[in-house]
Nucleic acid binder design. Structure first.
Lengths: 119, 119
DNA sequence: CTAAATGCAAACTATTTGCAACGAT
DNA sequence: ATCGTTGCAAATAGTTTGCATTTAG
């Protein structure tokens, strides 16, 4: 695994931020001024393929990257703020209802974050 | 509501296909040869805003459009085929676990479709 | 008559690709 | 020497925007 791949993986694992490729690039550039965007994109794709990180497709905004550990997401409908949350595992329930086995699932729960609720 | 908006809405409501903007454009063009892509995009955005249709953000592929009626999605991890499904409503469970109210949720369940399972 | 809808071209954002150079094994 | 990694520039895909024109109420 390349130098940048390691650093990018650390950035993703050490932050709660769900950064976009652009944000990761800017962050990485602070310590690695020579890095270019394409390298970040390439590394992100490699890491996804290896299952080391997870890509989150968002509506009307660039993809964000997240740890690969299984968990769900809470998304503020208003400001789009994204936070990790672990709801009870639904695999059994879903498999039972489907009548077959599933590989995984992606659950985004929309709500109004405390800040937006006060408006 | 404009002429094209109505037709696009019908296309989405009458098909199970979860078409992309491009596919909808091509479909619409069969009967309305003068329509251009930008118009389709504009109408799709309008319809989304009015809550008449739903946009599905997919990983590594263009957005797809779907009926707005609440339901979940089954996605084949292999061929990306997408089908509608209604799992039992989770709102109460999620609200209970979250300890607060939610607006909605988006659930994508990944599996291998019958065709891909045979390989 | 007016506001909304459309066509068209250009702009834009996010991302990918090709290729040459580099670096570590 | 070889192969994966990087930088760079150009290309691409998907989508949006500005503006003049047309259409419908």
């Amino acid at each position: 695994m390349g130098r940048y791949a390691k650093l990018i993986l650390e950035l993703i694992n050490q932050s709660e931020k769900h950064m976009t490729a652009e944000q990761l690039f800017l962050e990485l550039k602070k310590t690695e001024p020579k890095v270019v965007q394409a390298t970040v994109y390439n590394n992100l794709n490699n890491l996804c393929q290896k299952g080391l990180i997870r890509k989150l497709s968002m509506e009307n905004s660039p993809d964000r990257y997240d740890r690969s550990r299984k968990h769900d997401h809470l998304v503020c409908k208003n400001c789009k703020a994204l936070s990790d949350i672990s709801f009870e595992d639904l695999t059994d329930t879903l498999e039972h209802q489907l009548g077959g086995s599933i590989l995984s699932y992606d659950l985004k729960v929309f709500y109004l974050c405390p800040k937006c609720r006060r408006e």
